[in-house]
Design a protein around this nucleic acid. Structure first.
Lengths: 237, 237
DNA sequence: TCAGAACCTTGTACGGCGTACAACGTAAGA
DNA sequence: TCTTACGTTGTACGCCGTACAAGGTTCTGA
């Protein structure tokens, strides 16, 4: 029962401790709990992943969930690692570093689009999971063609992935999207009154950027802008 | 009472609607509520900002808080905007664009260091607050020396600020820092067993990066690495 | 063979959370 | 002075994570 998070993360590894033989067979496994939690998060967001709802989804009492997972914090780590483990990792072939890095960026953007709840999980212990480590290893190899020492290689990958994460966050659909039109109808006039002629640069650039954002197929502008710069910045001198 | 968030954000503006004249004088103001909430978040983190604790801190019942703020969601927006409003904005003088952007980055890193809870607030409506708009305007002006159209200027600033945000997130002290040594003592052996000879690149780079992280004064390595690249990438062609 | 140990499941309960609601008091306008 | 609008408050509801103890189930070892 006090199986540690590290062992739960590696539960599929042959060397992982398994539950004792005695007692009734568990009606569910840790893996099933994590899968159900991921499905719930995909469908309704991370806030919907409560222990009680998870129990319902598994046909088991709420407290029974704690037999397979130590608590909600740990569950989030398991969910994140499972998502990384199942993520399709890009192939590199003998492509140049720009293409390789671009594929890493695309794959991660797709990941966050499919599982926006990953952006809300920020627990360092995820780094010790098998999925996370495999992903890290594979993505480090994208930088093979570049002349970077170990520390710089890690920093470069972090730089790329942080950019992707920020972009994904910006592209994430606002949960308030439905109400925004009517809210904006009420706010626009007042905001104009408050602003007057102040901050003219902000007003001009902000509305330009806002229109660009709402234009068809162009929330990707910031993505292209940023990704191009990220790639340029990795150029070996 | 149904004062809208937009009016609360601009509560110090002369054109903002004030509460009616009748009835007992309020024992606190919206500003005082927001200030108390920020103090609480600075001291104990955003999770400590509950309506009940806020009421206690203000010497007022929990429900009374709702007279001055529409709900917790709105309160977070007010807190973030207030933090931006009070942030010291850098001066530019007649410095070149590299220096100007570096000052913007430094100022934002300092902001997030002082108020780590800002990283947990992610509500688009913050964008309509006076503090946020003033900050946006001022930071856009950092890019004056660069030949950017409006949409690109916004994208460039977003690029810089997202980098800072990610760095601040990485530098943020882990709330589990106390327990980590003992956890790691229990985990290290098992993780080595699980990993074996797999993912050698990840193991080598990861431990190199981990050691660099723990070395004195070097969590700033990733910061310097990234900031240098952000600046390079903004070079006009 | 059979008791006891080990294990899973469950219901109840506790202390928290955000906040709806209604009762009450207070001060200004009519 | 009476009414009306407003601020304050206590109670209560439905959530949350999870501690705890009771009960059932399966294997182990004597």
């Amino acid at each position: 029962m006090p199986r540690e998070l590290i062992d739960l993360l590696w539960r599929d590894h042959p060397a992982a401790p398994q539950g004792g033989a005695r007692g009734p067979r568990s009606r569910v496994t840790t893996g099933a709990v994590v899968d159900a939690a991921r499905a719930l998060a995909d469908a309704e967001g991370l806030a919907a992943v409560t222990v009680r709802r998870l129990g319902d989804a598994l046909g088991v009492s709420a407290m029974s969930v704690y037999t397979h997972v130590n608590g909600r914090d740990d569950l989030l780590v398991l969910m994140a690692d499972a998502a990384y483990a199942r993520m399709p990792l890009p192939t590199y072939g003998n492509a140049g570093w720009r293409t390789r890095v671009r594929r890493v960026a695309d794959a991660n953007l797709a990941l966050h689009r499919e599982h926006p709840w990953l952006l809300e999980i920020d627990d360092d212990r995820t780094a010790f999971g098998p999925g996370t480590i495999a992903k890290y290893d594979h993505e480090l190899h994208a930088l093979d063609p570049l002349p970077l020492d170990d520390v710089a290689r890690d920093a470069a990958l972090t730089f790329v992935l942080d950019f992707v994460r920020a972009s994904a966050r910006a592209q994430r659909p606002d949960p308030r999207a439905d109400e925004m039109p009517e809210i904006w109808a009420r706010w626009a006039g007042r905001l104009a009154e408050y602003l007057g002629d102040d901050h003219q640069l902000a007003q001009r650039v902000g509305s330009a950027a806002g229109e660009a954002m709402n234009a068809p197929a162009s929330p990707t502008h910031a993505w292209e802008f940023g990704l191009a710069r990220v790639l340029d910045s990795l150029n070996p001198k």
